[in-house]
């Protein structure tokens, strides 16, 4: 033990608590709900948390994490979800085979990313404004496509089993949405922290001009990032559609705020406040568990949102206060 390690000061301890606020919060809510609602700890319930609350939000939040890593944000992830869903449903209704329809769905989502890429990397609009514009335009486009916002149902009978597989199937006993989420998480982690692409994206989010002065074609990376974001979000569109067998215009936006919240909660896990995949996953887990636990605790249903909000607020407050303190020393 060197002298430096021995002289651990109180601020250091406080800071490490601050950094681990997310894990502490997660542990605390877990214990709390296990105590408040015995049903919480049952295998069936935990599985339902993972499938119903966690899986889809996790995928959207992973997409958001890429945008935030690149120093931006994507308010149009919901639009990509919707476009994918619409394309998927339309192609199935047109009698296309499911794999083709699914592929078409992904393309539908990626169109949104391409649009963003042109605005952000091409013209140079700030990501917030560009994707806000996309969100609005996307909403209108959907309403035009659906006669003013009518849902597009698939007939209750005659839907091929392959269609239902994404939402309801299992692979070796594990629900497909969960498998997909796990794959997306693993892939995203690999890309963001172990590839050239991920490194450049992170660096561009931290100090874009240095990336440019390092001889890296920054715009190409920015464009690729927003296309990737929409591609990942499109996966959610497919699963969602398969689960509920209906396309509801502009329904994807429901994920937006929680995805942003989870991503930024996740940054508190990183010592330097960087967006990161494990942090985002823990953030989503926290949000999912709180939503489920509050429900089971027999509290008024609506306290859920208050609880979630307060929790996000406290984790962010600790995280930021902590970063401020770190910057001062």
């Amino acid at each position: 033990m060197s002298a430096r390690q021995l002289s651990v000061s109180i601020p250091t301890v406080a800071r490490s608590i601050g950094r681990h606020a997310l894990i502490a919060a997660l542990a605390a809510v877990f214990v709390l709900f296990a105590w408040l609602a015995p049903a919480f700890l049952s295998g069936a319930n935990l599985l339902s948390v993972l499938v119903n609350n966690f899986a889809l939000l996790a995928i959207v939040a992973i997409a958001m994490t890429f945008a935030v890593s690149a120093g931006g944000i994507d308010l149009s992830v919901g639009t990509a979800i919707d476009f994918a869903s619409f394309a998927f449903v339309s192609l199935v209704l047109a009698g296309q085979p499911i794999p083709i329809a699914a592929l078409g769905g992904l393309v539908g989502g990626v169109v949104v990313g391409l649009f963003n890429a042109v605005l952000i990397a091409g013209i140079g609009i700030s990501p917030f404004l560009a994707t806000l514009g996309t969100l609005f335009v996307g909403r209108s486009v959907q309403q035009l496509l659906t006669n003013g916002g009518n849902p597009v149902y698939l007939p209750p009978t005659g839907v091929p089993d392959a269609f239902r597989f994404l939402g309801h199937g299992t692979i070796v006993g594990i629900p497909v949405p969960l498998v997909v989420a796990a794959l997306v998480v693993a892939g995203a982690w690999l890309v963001l922290s172990r590839t050239r692409f991920g490194r450049v994206v992170l660096a561009s989010g931290i100090q874009a001009s240095v990336v440019r002065y390092s001889g890296i074609a920054l715009r190409r990376y920015t464009a690729a990032t927003y296309i990737l974001v929409s591609g990942i979000a499109a996966i959610v569109g497919l699963i969602l559609t398969s689960t509920v067998t209906v396309y509801i215009p502009s329904s994807g936006n429901a994920f937006l705020l929680n995805a942003i919240g989870a991503t930024f909660i996740g940054t508190t896990l990183s010592p330097h406040g960087r967006p990161n995949i494990p942090g985002t996953v823990l953030g989503v887990l926290l949000l999912s568990i709180v939503a489920n636990g509050l429900l089971l605790s027999g509290l008024n249903f609506y306290w859920q949102q208050v609880g979630t909000g307060l929790l996000i607020f406290s984790v962010l407050a600790i995280g930021f206060a902590n970063r401020k303190a770190a910057a001062r020393t």
């Binding site: 050239r196 992170l202 100090q207 240095v210 001889g215």
Partner: peptide, 24 residues
Amino acid sequence: RRDGVALDLSVTENTTLASLDRFS
């Protein structure tokens, strides 16, 4: 401090930023 080094990246991440191909 604006164009030469990224202040919030580590020494390693700065050092290899222009030569990531070498390590990829």
